[in-house]
Design a binder for these strands. Sequence first.
DNA 1: TTTTGAGTTGTTCGA
DNA 2: GTCGAACAACTCAAA
Length: 481
Amino acid sequence: MHMTKSPIIVWFRQDLRITDNPALNAAGATGRPIIALYILDDHSPGAWRKGGASRWWVNGSLSSLSKALKKLGLYLALRRGKAADVLHALISETSAGAVYWNRCYEPFAIERDKAIKTTLRAKGVNIESFNSSLLFEPWELRTLSQTPFKVFAPFYKAALKAPSPHTPLPAPKSLRPFEGTVSSDNLETWALQTTTPDWAGGLREAWTPGEASAQTNLHRFLDDTVGDYYKGRDIPGQALTSRQSPHLHFGEISPHQIWHTTLAREPNAGTASYLREVVWREFAYHLLFHWPAITDQPLRADFKNFPWATDAMSLKAWQRGQTGYPIVDAGMRELWTTGWMHNRVRMIAASFLVKHLLQPWQVGAAWFWDTLVDADLANNSASWQWVAGCGTDAAPYFRVFNPVLQGLKFDGTGEYVRRWVPEIAALPNEWIHKPWDAPMDVLASANLKMGTTYPWPIIELTAGRDRALAALKTIRQTSAP
DNA sequence: TTTTGAGTTGTTCGA
DNA sequence: GTCGAACAACTCAAA
């Protein structure tokens, strides 16, 4: 058989879209028959098994991708297992001569893909990989002395100065399908969406996975709210953020599409700060690429000796949204119900766990990994380390978010808290962020029994803050020579 | 090589 | 109620 006629496997991973998909376009351009493949890979060494919310999402995303491919004449084959094994099997079934994919950047994925590339090339299979999920490859942006960046501001400056990211590719007009038989799992048998119990009602209500939804959502955001984004993105009671994170994570939309579509709009403070947030995502990937251990280990070595006060009860109260601090509890319940939490509240809730409750950031990261529909190894690792103060930037150690002040400042109307903590909804604004201080008659008329219908605060704020600052002091001393 | 300016998102205290 | 200073020291990145 001539290699040039042999089919190409397009291996879909975190690029579940047909527009601006370089691997798919390149395969299409060869004119050779195409086999579209997705592998549910929980088995490669070091793989971060998708959490519950992510599994729910990818189920919807795959079903949407499979429909879109069908319109192009392609059938999406679903297989599960160790990616290398699946590929070897499929190649021997179909005599495929090439595998095309868009790059992933998680440390385990890099290692897996490198190994696959080596063994398949040794067998004479051509491998082509493409960039589809980052505006800048993690190794592209460098300081003047050729080192990777550790601080966002200069990274951002370098990103703006760098050559413009590629403009998005159109969807291929038509593709030549592979004509042989390729067996596929039935998506339902993967049981990514558990129905007993069906805990995903809130997710279904909040989200529509898939490329079409990602596009609709981007245009809604740019048409209606980006103008208010600069300040509005801090107000959790209002829906002024882009809500693109899960779409971006699964590659239902590319950052290039977001970048160029946004740049084509009337520039203002909102569009500028939105693009800046997209560069934050790039920065997280840059950090993960150059410091792959940040998924588990604090980047700052002195934090290895940090005296965390690991405590299962504290963690549980936080996870369940029962800390007694309304803004924290609201956030944790929004997360549990919808698989997402507003960015401002993520910072408050994360800071509360790490600082006031002195729980290791890794356990918070693990909970987010399991419950977020946008769970992303780079963003999650970098962001938790930022909050904990052990990451790259020199955030001042004394920056401890006060959940009452943050609540008053960013949810002064209590709209957000009332939505997610209904048992205190009848409290007037004055007490909505500190129900424990409310007078007896106010509590009574709000039908609120502290300690019964809503918990007393799990920890006193000043005591928690002082304990955190004292803990930080200890590692400063121990890290001295 | 050395120097210099700066570093996402805050809180508290005291005037 | 408002406002500015203090809260540490260190590391990064560029000049």
